[in-house]
Design a protein around this nucleic acid. Structure first.
Lengths: 184, 184
DNA sequence: ATCGTGTTTGAGTATTCACTCTAATTTGAT
DNA sequence: ATCAAATTAGAGTGAATACTCAAACACGAT
């Protein structure tokens, strides 16, 4: 993959894969469907990717990266910043958010690669939230701040999950309530 | 299906289906796998069920029913009762809880039957939680109590979701924290 | 004991899946 | 313009899928 044509084809395939996962989950994401939507034939797909799983993993990596804001400023942002960034991710990048949530539930079974990646990401996220909580409430024990961070992160995922089912669900309102609950 | 043998076979098939969905998701739940685990041949399966989807739907219906405590005492239980019942369901009936959570995301796509069922059940659940909240905090507006109930129910789902990924995750602790957040 | 009906058998069907292969075409540095 | 390498075309592979069917068998009311 060194020519322009190859790079364009790769982008088209990844776009198609992302949209298909968001629309119909891993189950509905077949090579045939991806190729049809990308306007490409299977031969081209396998010229650029070793397997279907490789393409899926690339998209999942994109989704996980997109769920975290400004990785450079790690440790310098407020809890409100973190929550708002997640709300923006869920409401503004619907496709990636659906991939993220969908993988967290169904895609991790029997696929250690995916499961490990999701769990590692979750842990990093909890740690980041914990730091922000400790900055806001310096008196808390580490155990307590960790517990609050875990409750907040998993609850936010639950709210995001419901938005996948009901697009009218107001994520921002519930995120605000959870934010308040975590700091009082 | 009128003889005892048929009823026994039906029960064996549903048990196998439930366990397989819990272990390996919808994707891994094939007719062959279900039949092998149930000690039955495909012909017997299709003598009792019209399709794979029918068997899956039956299991999902069981899971949804099991998520609600004492349907007869509707409206008479405290918020704490409701939360504790959900924790018991998630921690004690892992199989069904996994089916419920998994279906809510991955299974509902492209299957209006399932999607509608899940959303209707969610609405009933929110309404039940709202009533309990209003009894605990009589001063709240309906809009406010509804918002609190929605936050609580979706957050509990998020906590339960994470337990699917990490069996060591302490659901009870986080459920308690969410319960407190909903009533203060 | 008989007989209609429910149940099981187990091979068989059509389809779809991820993936391969070879030949033809396109690319871009020279 | 040339040519090696990158890319594409598109039919084809074997395995797995959901599902079917006719024949054998088991049940239980009579």
């Amino acid at each position: 993959m060194r020519y322009r044509a190859g790079l364009q084809t790769q982008a088209k395939i990844l776009d198609a894969t992302r949209k298909l996962i968001a629309e119909s989950g891993l189950e509905g994401t077949t090579i045939k469907a991806v190729c049809e939507r990308a306007g490409v034939l299977p031969g081209s797909f396998y010229n650029l990717f070793d397997s279907k799983e490789q393409a899926v993993l690339t998209v999942v990596r994109q989704a996980i990266d997109a769920a975290d804001p400004d990785p450079e400023q790690l440790g310098n942002e407020s809890l409100k910043d973190l929550v708002e960034a997640y709300v923006r991710f869920v409401t503004g990048q619907g496709d990636l958010a659906r991939v993220y949530i969908g993988i967290a539930v169904s895609g991790s079974r029997g696929k250690p690669e995916l499961r490990g990646r999701v769990l590692r990401h979750h842990q990093a996220r909890v740690s980041r939230f914990r730091q922000a909580i400790e900055k806001e409430r310096p008196g808390l024990s580490e155990q307590d701040s960790t517990r609050r961070a875990e409750t907040l992160v998993t609850s936010l995922n639950g709210v995001a999950l419901h938005r996948v089912l009901d697009p009218k669900f107001d994520v921002a309102v519930h995120a605000r309530a959870l934010l308040e609950g975590a700091t009082t």
